[in-house]
Every structure is written in structure tokens, then in C-alpha cells.
Nucleic acid binder design. Structure first.
Lengths: 236, 236
DNA sequence: CGTGAACTGTATCTATCGTACACAGTGTCC
DNA sequence: GGACACTGTGTACGATAGATACAGTTCACG
């Protein structure tokens, strides 16, 4: 998975700063169209099905024609993200930072449920497009009236979104603790076979009801925020 | 990144259930040796430098010889994980669930700092080896004396480790919020340029001190656990 | 109005990846 | 002393991302 070569060019592409060429033949399609079909392929068959070859074929063109629109595959993924993230939630109608964050978490979860490949590519140092940037902006607005400092607010919204990301990944293929998938029954057998070395895990997984939910974690996180906020209030 | 083909075979490999062959020439090396050199390559040059070709060459052998020891690359990664995770922390010497979890988080963070590629491959449904399995067992032991239910304990330790994972990934290349890396200055310029659309992010990133730490998040999480635990105590 | 520069999509090529398969040595058991 | 299982090797294949060269198209400018 090659990294982006020229982040400045990517920024111009995502933020609509590309100067349209005057001379030359009309392009047969545009970046938005490419991104849309790539998103459809990823939604239907997973991100690993998205290759230059495949997307080009989907549009009825050669692979190398795509390189006229995106400089490399990292740029293709970037425009896919920008095309797939929906509109960031408007939290102004919700009262209180806690309800706002809960609403934000719900919306984020819903967006990622629509495009299961999205949480895996929205990590790491990268250039975000305007639509994606609106999401952390929205999350920050939830904490606007709290006494938290600005770095703390950043940490807070990252904590929430990372939790949603992790639990979402857990729901789809299973995660570090085995909820479902091919490996789950094998791990259960191994744990029961070695119950003397791993007694806690063995008893926990003896009951097959261990479905990881994101509710407990989200409540804990928000309770933690509440603790920090109420503790800070009398000082300020 | 092809998925593992035969999780049962992988389980036998990781848990030492491989029957040693009697006939045939002596193997030139063993799986532990392969895993060790692969770990060294990953530590020095990143996980993307680990290919069958590269590891074989590092050992002075052909690429295809590796397939006598691991069935596919997923198995190679699996034995790398098992070789790289250190011993799980013994928390019996620490008093109180909160201090235990803090110690666990410290140890986990330290282990991942030693092998920066480790957090990215320890997700998803997969077969874990005994050394890695000891880690969640250790984490569960921290919550043994709490009134939390077993599914809640699982959720709790997943929340802690996922937080460490996310913040660790943030420290190394930068994450969703841009702390460092090639994209960071570009994003800052874009935010300041569009400060009207993203006022909160723009002001937050005007000060270049926004280094994401894992302390705030961890404290919030543990505060949340404390809330759940103290709330549960009178009932039980 | 025509010509050249800029831009388009295409065809060909390379490098790297994981992995299947046939083969010739090598060591153990009957 | 075979038979046989197991070893490492060489070759081959398909898929990947990407570079480069090329021929057709269209607009701007003289």
C-alpha cells in the first residue's frame, strides 16, 4: 500500500483547487465519477477489490487512464473517502455536550456501517478533504461549552471516534477478542484445552454470549468526561 | 494481504502441536529463527519490508524454502507476533484494579513501542498464540475483584487496549488529527485558509502544541470504569 | 485560419508480490 | 538396501502498482 507521494497535489485535488486545463480533448469522466464507482466496488466487494485495473475496467477504460485523474492509488483512496463520508452531523439541535457526543457517535457509526471499509482507511497522517474535515469540527462543537482545554477536547473526540472505529471493526470480522469468524471456535477450543493457564479467558468464553458492544465503552468514556468536566467547573 | 487459509494449521503451529517429522533431512532452521529475523526486519524497516523474498534472503535461502515452515504469509505474521510480544505483565503485585489497569496500559504501550508494527497486526479475527493470549488474561485479572459482569470486563479491557493502540498509532505517524508527518503542515494551512468553515479546528491548530497524549483518554476511561464500579457496589 | 502546444486515452514494459508445482538431493525406518 | 518422507531449489504464473512512449484530439494564439 504505497503512501501518497505528493500531499500538496492531493490537497489541491480534494479541496477543488485544480486549475481546469484549457487546451486538449475533453476528459471522458471526472474524479467524482471515478470515486463513486470505486466506492461502489468497495462497498460491494471490500476495499481489497479496489485496484486501478478494476476501477478502470468498471468504467470501460484502461488502467493507465486513471493516472490522468489521480496521481497514485493513495489519491484514489483519498477521493473515495471524501465521496463516501456523508455530511457531518449538525449538533446544534441537541442539548448538552453528552447528548451531542452520543448523537455524534451514532452518526459516525451509521456512516461507517454504510461503508465498512471506511474506518480502516481513515487513520494515519494524511490530508483530509473538506467533507471529512467537517466531522471533527462537528465533534469539537459538542464540547464548546465545557471547561476542557483545547488539547483535551481533541483527545476527547479522538477517544470517542477511535472507540467507534474499534468496536465497528469488532462487529464486522471480529477483533482481538474473538466474537465471530473462522478463528473464534478454534480459539475457544484452545482456551478450554488450556483452561489452567488462562482461567479467566476460559470461563469468559465458556458462555458463547460474549458479543462486544460499543455501549459499555461509550458510557464509560462519557462518564469519564463528565468526571473531568464537573471536577473542573468549580475552579473555572 | 491474503488472509490465513487454514486457521487450524496455524493453531497447531503457534501452540506447539506440530508433530516433528522423523524421516527426511534436517531442516536448516526452525520457525523461531525465521520469526526472529522477520521481527528484526520489521523493527528496522517497517512491516512493509517483510516479504517472503526478503526474509528468505536474510537467512540465505530461497523464498520457496520458507513455505516448508509457514503455509502462507499470514502464518509468518502470526509467528512474528508471537515472537515479538513480550511476557504479559504480572499484576498480582499491584494493589487495586485501577493501578493494575494503569500498569497494564504502561506495559502494553512499552511493548508496542518496541515493535511499532505490532499494534497494526493485532486486530481482527485471528488465532492468537499462547504468549499473546496471556495479555488479555492478565488484563482480565485486573478486574477480577470488581462487580463488573464478564462481558463488561471484556469490553473494558478491549477499550483500554484499543485506546493504547490508537494513541500509539497517533504517536508514530500521526493520526486522524494531524500531529506530525508530511500532511500536518498542509492540513494546518488548509484549516487557516478555511477558518470560516472550520473555526474550532482552526483555532485549535493555530497553536502548534496539539500533541495527542494517551493520558487524558486513559484517565477518562478509568474514571468511567470507576463510576460503573462504585455505582454497582451497593447493589451487590 | 492554420499550426503548435497541451492534453487525452492506449499499448507496452518493468518490478515486486504471493504462491503453485516439479525436481533432485537427503535422511530414517522396514 | 530400498522405500519413502522430507528437504531446499528453480521455474512459472497471475495480479499488483507504476513508468514511459505514442498517437489521436482540441483549444489558444499568431
Amino acid at each position: 500500500m504505497s503512501a501518497n507521494e505528493d500531499p500538496k497535489a492531493l490537497a489541491e485535488l480534494l479541496w477543488g483547487l485544480r486549475k481546469p486545463p484549457s487546451r486538449g480533448p475533453r476528459p471522458a469522466f471526472d474524479v467524482a465519477q471515478i470515486a463513486e464507482t470505486a466506492v461502489q466496488v468497495a462497498d460491494a466487494e471490500g476495499l481489497e477489490a479496489v485496484s486501478m485495473q478494476r476501477i478502470a475496467a468498471e468504467l470501460g477504460f484502461t488502467k493507465m487512464a486513471l493516472y490522468r485523474y489521480v496521481n497514485d492509488k493513495a489519491e484514489l483512496i483519498a477521493v473515495m473517502i471524501e465521496a463516501a463520508v456523508g455530511a457531518a452531523p449538525r449538533l446544534s439541535g441537541v442539548a448538552g455536550w453528552r447528548a451531542k457526543l452520543e448523537e455524534y457517535a451514532r452518526e459516525l457509526s451509521a456512516a461507517w456501517r454504510l461503508h465498512p471499509w471506511l474506518p480502516s482507511v481513515t487513520t494515519g497522517d494524511r490530508v483530509m478533504g473538506p467533507r471529512e474535515t467537517a466531522w471533527p469540527e462537528s465533534a469539537l462543537s459538542a464540547l464548546a461549552d465545557t471547561p476542557l482545554t483545547e488539547p483535551e477536547r481533541l483527545d476527547a473526540i479522538m477517544l470517542v471516534s477511535n472507540h467507534i472505529r474499534a468496536t465497528h471493526a469488532a462487529a464486522t470480522p471480529g477483533t482481538q477478542i474473538w466474537t465471530d469468524g473462522d478463528a473464534a471456535p478454534i480459539m475457544r477450543d484452545l482456551l478450554l484445552l488450556n483452561a489452567d493457564r488462562f482461567p479467566l479467558l476460559a470461563t469468559t468464553h465458556a458462555t458463547p454470549s460474549a458479543t462486544t458492544t460499543q455501549e459499555f465503552g461509550l458510557h464509560a468514556i462519557l462518564d469519564g468526561f463528565e468526571h473531568a468536566i464537573t471536577q473542573r467547573i468549580p475552579k473555572q
